[in-house]
Design a protein around this nucleic acid. Sequence first.
DNA 1: AAACTCTGTCATGCA
DNA 2: TGTGCATGACAGAGT
Length: 616
Amino acid sequence: MTRLDRSSHSGGGHAKGSRPLNSLLAGHGVAQPPSAPGSRASVQDIDLIDILWRQDIDLGAGREVFDYSHRQKEQDVEKELRDGGEQDTWAGEGAEALARNLLVDGETGESFPVQFPADISSITEAVPSESEPPDLQNNLLSPLLTGTESPFDLEQQWQDLMSIMEMQAMEVNTSASEILYNTPSGDPLSTNYSLAPSTPINQNVSLHQASLGGCSQDFLLFSPEVESLPVASSSTLLPLVPSNSTSLNSTFGSTNLTGLFFPPQLNGTANDTAGPELPDPLGGLLDEAMLDEISLMDLAIEEGFNPVQASQLEEEFDSDSGLSLDSSHSPSSLSSSEGSSSSSSSSSSSSSSSSSSASSSFSEEGAVGYSSDSETLDLEEAEGAVGYQPEYSKFCRMSYQDPAQLSCLPYLEHVGHNHTYNMAPSALDSADLPPPSALKKGSKEKQADFLDKQMSRDEHRARAMKIPFTNDKIINLPVEEFNELLSKYQLSEAQLSLIRDIRRRGKNKMAAQNCRKRKLDTILNLERDVEDLQRDKARLLREKVEFLRSLRQMKQKVQSLYQEVFGRLRDENGRPYSPSQYALQYAGDGSVLLIPRTMADQQARRQERKPKDRRK
DNA sequence: AAACTCTGTCATGCA
DNA sequence: TGTGCATGACAGAGT
């Protein structure tokens, strides 16, 4: 009983050691995140827009967003723009309809001044869903509606965009707006900007008032630089125009959002100089994305993972339910050679211990002892060298673990039950059944040779010392019974010492076997862990690629919206604004301002500084 | 013959 | 203190 408890204890110890691995595995297996965004069925972006809109309305941003402090002045400008805007396409029929309809709340029908919502989500929110003229809606929403991302993707990226834009908007609101509206007229900035009487155009105009009229697009307007405006910019700007996916893709990785958002020639009339590299409101996000992508590539290079191949790898992993690691070969073979004891990982710990305990208990029956395992006889030396046969020892190990198998092998069973091996070889010959091969030879000497080969060194020693009981009993009997057995015989000190050594070595031998089995099981478990982790890694990489792709698409859409809105803006003379001199900027109060690029650039720089300080 | 694997054994630490 | 177990290290034999 003590032995069984011990063995179970040892098994428990092993299980304790391997449990974290198993639990880790289980955790990996269970904790499957939602499927890759790209793989999910795409939901119409308009749904997301509606959701976001309602969220903002719920948050109280539905109405207030559409109001801002300079309404009066902007209404004046709006009037002007409306008068002048009717001449161009934007002010045409669709624009008028838009101007009319966009003043009506899509949900309540309540009329309100069209304004750009306060965050980027409001960009989509502000996009009229049903009440808008289809043409404009399509015009402005087409980039969004073409998206195939899952709502999760869109929402996530909108939130990212919003967070960045809101930060910018806050900055713009608290600084630019103050400068624009509150600074004394002597301020060169303000003079240069909107309130200056010298400026014929009131740049401090909300987008809808300026020219879009009823377009309640929520827009982030970014501040390009004016200071270093190279004059040749229309040409230089053009490449930045993401008119097609290729250019956009190229700009995604190599340029900031300046290229994305800085409107190129607008309406074909903007022949002014384009700005240089403009601060990118989404620069942080983009840079991060770029960095992520770069790091992803680095990771791919370092780890042998190609993001593009990640999915392939994933598929391989998914399709391959078996072992895909080369390293698993040797342990697999090992486990196979070890038989059933180490075949299953989850039960391997217990199996190894149970097998040992089973063998122990079985050995305690006296039927089989571990001593029958791989115990051979060296013909040359009775005391001496090992001289065992590995194949046979393996066979014997399997046999002693399975009594049924052993019963089918009488000569092995004899080995287990041989209580008389301490007798003279001649006496053993009559009692022992030789193996079939030995029987065929029919030679008593060969039988003795075989029996000798089955004996271990300790058995030889025991026989030489005339130990009156089997090594099996010496090793596997419980302490009490063992001491009882010793007390039954009058043994010399040498005999007792040998018996103790035999017992110690025999137990240690079994312990070593168990230990090696456990070690193999641990290796197998670790390999499974590695496989699972690699599978997870591939999946995460694939998801990351999907997110990056979605982000890129969102940037495209935002850029196209910017261009579209900016291109439709007209000054009081009906002329389009020069993208090199003006930029649209998003204000925290929900308004969208048309500001000079100098101002926008300053604010953008300030925004750039903030995250850096924050990182410190 | 060298490299590798398998196995037994010893020494040691822990319970 | 004795006993058993676990394990690293080593050595011998076999492949």
